[in-house]
Nucleic acid binder design. Structure first.
Lengths: 262, 262
DNA sequence: TAGTGGTCTAGACCACAGC
DNA sequence: CTGTGGTCTAGACCACTAA
């Protein structure tokens, strides 16, 4: 027989208009918010909740699916439902592409991750020439074909970000930029060596729920949105020399920017 | 009797490992992506899908709930399930707080919305003195009490953003900033008149799923995340003079920033 | 009034985790 | 092996929308 959950859950209000499964979700949410279930803790099992509230299993599962879509809990087959721990957050500062951060042997991602005490990793490396899409063309100019550099970033084994850089072929072809490892300082350092001194970057930030392939690539728990960031790099002549399309697990990031008041 | 859905949906693959409700969701998602169901179009009813795929109603509902949590569709009681139309997007430019945008009779929000052909509205106005929270104190300095200005922004009747500004009492008390309507140019114009010439703003951007009260305030469809933006304004003496905490419907915004390359 | 989605029941069998 | 969540059925009654 299933044991009754501790004492943290009350009774339903049968006079309430609020649906039973919502009332159960409300109680569990409140218990989580107030710390009666801590991060990583296991919620009562479906059987226990079923018995405690005197409802059918589907009603309980319905409640849990609400909390899951809110990103509060995640279920593990055969183990239970757990309060979702918040992963360490990567803070992206507005000066992260400043030249002074580039003159090193390692990539910005590696340096920063190690400073934070995490184990950085880059995989799914792919470099190839592709037909440009309308979106990329609109930003890069009229290049029909582009060099695409795809890679995935992980922290301590957890995927956090998936990025694709697009560069005009007339700039990147037959240069270190077309190599899997472009060398110290990354492609921005190489662009400057090729005479494209960088002047500024434009970034566009959106948030949305992930598509199924993004859930897979980033191993996202349900209830975790993605931040979609599109960055365009401009050289001192005003030419767009790179577009970087990035999809990030939203629970792993905070973006910091500085705006002028003038 | 329910009519069969057009011809856009195929059959299930009984040999597949993939759960039936996922297969159904996949088919519907593909049909939406390929435009076989357009924006705002009604999907086949649950009864039609039940009959077409030969499964129980709960299985069909399970499929639809996946699409709903992905933000692809939204259901309307008594009417049907519809492909969710994308609302017009507000683009927040990085120079939106530049001084030159302030010297007008209307607020930045109003000016910008009218330029975009929308009907702007501000409600839920509340101005009061409050105890500061640790988060606010960390940004504003050690002020124990602050002036809080709360308001909700709507475009064409749809809530898009909910914001609270916090200001140190020693700056804001007994000034136009403590009035419901602070006058032309908003509180930033008033701060400068009071001798706090603004130097720059820091913004922190996060994305997450909304809490239940945010769903209510912003009338969010399920599957729509929020962008959580915290802005701190600094004057030329380096003092933090305002913290603005904003929660935005993520489907209504794109944030644009400019980063220096130096 | 007919058709739609919203809620709920009481079962069933399965796959996975962990002892 | 037991307990867990994952999937699925075949009903039921309700509330809302629109003709």
């Amino acid at each position: 027989m299933a044991a009754l959950p501790s004492g943290v859950l009350g009774a339903l209000d049968p006079t309430s208009d609020r649906a039973v499964f919502r009332q159960i979700a409300d109680q569990l949410r409140e218990a989580i918010d107030k710390g009666r279930f801590k991060e990583g803790a296991k919620l009562p099992s479906e059987a226990e909740l079923t018995e405690h509230f005197g409802v059918s299993r589907m009603t309980v599962r319905n409640s849990l699916s609400i909390l899951q879509s809110e990103g509060l809990v995640s279920s593990e087959h055969g183990r239970g439902v757990f309060v979702r721990p918040r992963p360490p957050v990567r803070r992206l500062a507005s000066d992260r592409f400043a030249r002074r951060h580039r003159d090193q042997g390692k990539s910005a991602f590696t340096v920063e991750a190690e400073a934070a005490g995490s184990r950085p990793e880059v995989d799914s490396l792919e470099v190839r020439e592709e037909r440009s899409t309308p979106e990329i063309s609109a930003r890069l100019g009229s290049a029909r074909k582009v060099l695409a550099r795809r890679r995935r970033y992980l922290m301590d084994g957890k995927p956090v970000e998936f990025a694709t850089s697009y560069l005009p072929l007339d700039i990147a072809r037959n240069t270190p930029i077309a190599e899997p490892n472009p060398g110290p300082g990354g492609i921005y350092a190489r662009l400057e060596e090729l005479g494209h001194r960088l002047e500024h970057f434009d970034e566009e930030v959106r948030a949305r729920m992930p598509a199924p392939d993004e859930v897979k690539t980033l191993r996202l728990a349900s209830g975790v949105p993605v931040i979609h960031l599109v960055r365009t790099a401009y050289d001192t002549e005003g030419r767009a020399v790179e577009v970087c399309d990035t999809v990030m697990a939203a629970d792993a990031y905070v973006l910091a920017y500085q705006l002028p008041a003038t």
